[in-house]
């Protein structure tokens, strides 16, 4: 099979959560009709406000949830189908995940060696010395020392714990890492440290990263392409610079206008744009869909909006 350009292709992915039954049945469309693709060895950023479905998308890709409908291809292989042992093995050895909360994501009752070595053990490595050697190697890679292997998570700082989380994720040599807001619980100086570490590892190991975050400046610094999500929909996908220079979807504009400026003089005059879907869109006559406005720049819009967006691009 010819290697496709994309390592991960997600098509019309829906993830609905239901509660109750009969008349009380309630459906939450956490992810609704999301389509995007991730290239090999690139960093794809997924941004959006809290509760817009970024994390759910990431967790569905690694099959912590069973998708309601839609297609997911990883390396050309379908990963949205029925869960069985083979698929789980395939998924877990190719995709790894880094979690948001450095305190929550490490088991307080296990030593660092057990936590980081877990992935090797699951893969049938029974040789304790070999596991130990690999764990220490990995700890060195993320800037920790051998002595730390015998310690428990509560003895580490937030940044250190997040680096342990990274070590745990990449020790099995995955092809792709889903980083679910890996730095949002850390302070700024440590954020930089962790992001740089991720960047180095990415280059060294040829990793593909699906980077989920709500901090736009971090995403901009880190990502090759960025997808913007709003209430379960992916509303705009573009290259990092394109998105920042030519935001088309009103929600993207609103999101970008919310970034504080480092310069106090311009910060004072910064104007925030509101996004009100009822005012900004008129979908009563025409249905919106994902359209490529210019190469590599997709927007979720209706035909009339598309005209307007094209004009904006041409004038820019």
């Amino acid at each position: 099979m010819a290697e496709s350009e994309y390592i991960l292709e997600v098509k019309n992915l829906c993830q609905h959560f239901t509660s109750g039954r009969g008349r009380k049945k309630l459906t939450v469309k956490a992810v609704d009709d999301v389509t995007f693709s991730v290239r090999r060895a690139e960093t794809f950023g997924l941004v959006g406000e809290s509760g817009c479905g970024k994390t759910t998308t990431g967790r569905t890709v690694i099959r912590l949830y069973n998708p309601t409908s839609g297609q997911m291809l990883f390396d050309g292989r379908d990963i949205a189908g029925r869960m069985n042992r083979k698929l789980r093995e395939y998924l877990t050895s190719n995709i790894a995940m880094i979690f948001q909360d450095p305190i929550e994501s490490l088991n307080p009752k296990m030593t660092i060696e057990e936590i980081v070595g877990e992935g090797l053990k699951v893969r049938g490595n029974r040789n304790k010395e070999d596991i130990r050697r690999q764990v220490v190697q990995m700890l060195n890679k993320v800037g920790l020392v051998e002595e730390h292997a015998t310690r428990y998570p509560h003895e580490f700082s937030g940044g250190q714990r997040q680096r342990i989380g990274i070590a745990r994720a990449i020790i099995t040599n995955p092809k792709m890492v889903i980083a679910d807001e890996p730095v949002s619980a850390l302070d700024v100086s440590v954020q930089a440290q962790v992001i740089n570490l991720l960047n180095d590892l990415k280059e060294e190991m040829g990793l593909t990263i699906l980077f989920i975050a709500h901090n736009l400046s971090v995403v901009k610094y880190f990502s090759d392409r960025i997808g913007v999500m709003y209430y379960g929909h992916l509303v705009e996908v573009a290259k990092g610079d394109d998105l920042y220079q030519k935001p088309l979807h009103p929600y993207t504009r609103a999101l970008l206008s919310a970034i504080p400026e480092p310069n106090p003089l311009t910060e004072r005059t910064r104007v925030r744009i509101d996004y009100v879907p009822e005012r900004d869109h008129d979908y009563s006559l025409e249905h919106p869909s994902m359209v490529e406005v210019e190469p590599e720049h997709f927007v979720y819009c209706s035909p009339s909006e598309l005209e307007r967006y094209r004009e904006i691009i041409q004038n820019a």
Binding site: R59, I62, L64, R88, E89, L91, T92, S93, I95, A96, M97, F99, S105, L106, N107, E118, G119, V122, R123, G165, R168, T172
Partner: peptide
Amino acid sequence: LAARTLGV
């Protein structure tokens, strides 16, 4: 969840 993503 992390352990599940590792295939435990």
